[in-house]
Nucleic acid binder design. Sequence first.
DNA 1: AACTAATCGAGACGGTACGTCCTGTCTTACT
DNA 2: AGTAAGACAGGACGTACCGTCTCGATTAGTT
Lengths: 197, 197, 197, 197
Amino acid sequence: MPVSENTGIQAFPNGARSQRVHESALTAAVELLEEGGLTAATCDAVSARSGVSKATIYKHWPSKTAIAAEAFGRLMGEALPLPNTGSAVGDLTEQVRQVSAFYAAQPVFAQLLAACVTDPAAAPYFRHFFLAGRREAIATLWQRAVDRGETKPSVDAETATDILFGPLIFRLMTGHKPLTEEEADKIAAAALGGLLR
Amino acid sequence: MPVSENTGIQAFPNGARSQRVHESALTAAVELLEEGGLTAATCDAVSARSGVSKATIYKHWPSKTAIAAEAFGRLMGEALPLPNTGSAVGDLTEQVRQVSAFYAAQPVFAQLLAACVTDPAAAPYFRHFFLAGRREAIATLWQRAVDRGETKPSVDAETATDILFGPLIFRLMTGHKPLTEEEADKIAAAALGGLLR
Amino acid sequence: MPVSENTGIQAFPNGARSQRVHESALTAAVELLEEGGLTAATCDAVSARSGVSKATIYKHWPSKTAIAAEAFGRLMGEALPLPNTGSAVGDLTEQVRQVSAFYAAQPVFAQLLAACVTDPAAAPYFRHFFLAGRREAIATLWQRAVDRGETKPSVDAETATDILFGPLIFRLMTGHKPLTEEEADKIAAAALGGLLR
Amino acid sequence: MPVSENTGIQAFPNGARSQRVHESALTAAVELLEEGGLTAATCDAVSARSGVSKATIYKHWPSKTAIAAEAFGRLMGEALPLPNTGSAVGDLTEQVRQVSAFYAAQPVFAQLLAACVTDPAAAPYFRHFFLAGRREAIATLWQRAVDRGETKPSVDAETATDILFGPLIFRLMTGHKPLTEEEADKIAAAALGGLLR
DNA sequence: AACTAATCGAGACGGTACGTCCTGTCTTACT
DNA sequence: AGTAAGACAGGACGTACCGTCTCGATTAGTT
């Protein structure tokens, strides 16, 4: 678990035994998240199920949200494959659709996002173990589009990511409109109008 | 406090006495939010400061988040005036800037948004007493732009709102980038490229 | 549960409901003490068995030792009847024998005494709910002896109590000698030589 | 550290290295006891300060109380010189006074006594390294008195010790009366009335 | 003016998770 | 072997907050 510096991610014991423990706790957390969402992924519950003591858990993670974030990142690691439709519009629209469907299907995502507000120590974990993957995916797609000359030069990948996914998160959090595929398409279309030539 | 049906907002006793009580509780909640954010706006604290008993509070609101949402809506009621620069780009960019600054300055906003995920009963209150005002503002600006023929016909006000503000909320929640004025401008520029002609 | 002032015993809610709760917790504590000694009388255990929440227990008692002390006082309330042999020597010797046997049979006594060292807040409970009864018994016996003119005038009831029971407690705590009836008699005889004419 | 059999005191490695280690741990324990009482003399603390690892400590002593008991015995080894007033009353009264003052001034004594109840494996250490010294002192004084014919023949040194110091310990543990010099004198006077001619 | 509902203030309670603490065991690698 | 270093399980601790509840007091509206 080599973690780069300045990520806000806490160092933890590194021996073989510790790694087994780390693994056990994460596995238990994944199971609990699947069964009962973030609410069920209590520290006590993780400890009870994994056989890892609470004290040890707190040596590996700063809070229960942090374990959940790492567990969720693992749970969803490969869930979203990179689309390859041949055009930037196609790729990015497809990705927005997928992410939209994923968010709608995984209440844990919203719960984690929310929990990170209350529990700032967990936010780096969420960014590192979950968001980073999404942003990298977009960066790849965006680079492809750049190479093909399909993007507006004034826009960078970061901003593009925010504009494509921000609206999904907005809806997810406030629940003012459902996250259907149609809606995802509308958002993608309108957003891409500003990002591509 | 006439509340339309189907909003998910709970009816409560309507006598003169009840209205005083409602008012007292809200006032206390506003003060507590200002002083210590959502964390400080405990049920017990609201009860203690307002002299309204907890039981009564739970007759008027379904949860502590709901009071806080209504209180926050009141607190921020008139904080953001409608810009009028003469052009859609100017108006909307200005509004994005203002909202961005407001979010960055008011941690309570993110806290409330987060709390509504955990506490679904409170979400309607947040939408009704806070978001509704923002969406109306955009609706007005958007209608102006429509009247001037500045908008793309394929985009409606709802989608425009999501695309303009979603990115801000995304950043606010994950904290992966700061909400400076420059960033707000970049987002507004890129987003508006897709929304306006 | 009218408690005189300045005893160090904590006030607690006094309604009918609270009294039921107080009773429930004590009953559970008594059972646990009987089953597994002071070690078993955990706050969590008392809470679980009685159905009284931990938070409530901490409103009624300052610590787990305090509940145990009150429970033990109740448990042993009438265990030791006042002897009446007709003479001070007989009465006091008999009382020393009884107390000695009781201490030896009730490990909880020593455990409580020990716990009060670590947990000073519980000491008043032990004194009030347990020791007070013993000291009163001796005071009664001593007064009888005074009335009969059997005591040395230079000795008061308090000192007599300390000299009669102190040695028992000394042995109980350090375990350097067993608390048999013979030993109790030796102690009583030697001690009473200094107390009576 | 030659320890007779059947004392309940645990054998431990005997090489030169082991003895250095034993010494280091004890020294650290003594310091910690002086600084913060028994509470501060944690296993971890002793380990950290002495550089002796916890595993090693547990090869030399059965529990943390045991180290503390041995350390305390060493700390107080020569603190109480034998009085020599020329009479048994004088000697023993003086000794009671000294011990009383010592108990009152050294909270560690009560803490250790209490800890031995919970931790029976440590009791032999307390008896061996601390109490034994006190009892020997009394035995010496008592023998002097016997030689002078000042004692009652029915009383032995053991019982005398219990009757003289038991009351002090009783007060120390329950705290129902302070351990002032006056009180010590009252106790000594009353107790010695039963022990001497 | 009295009566009867509704409504309220006060605050205790059950439930539940939290994060901390310390003991004694265990592992690993070094001397 | 014996040791240093230190991670680990286990389990109690005492705290915090939520939302429900019980009680007696207060207040409207109704008769």
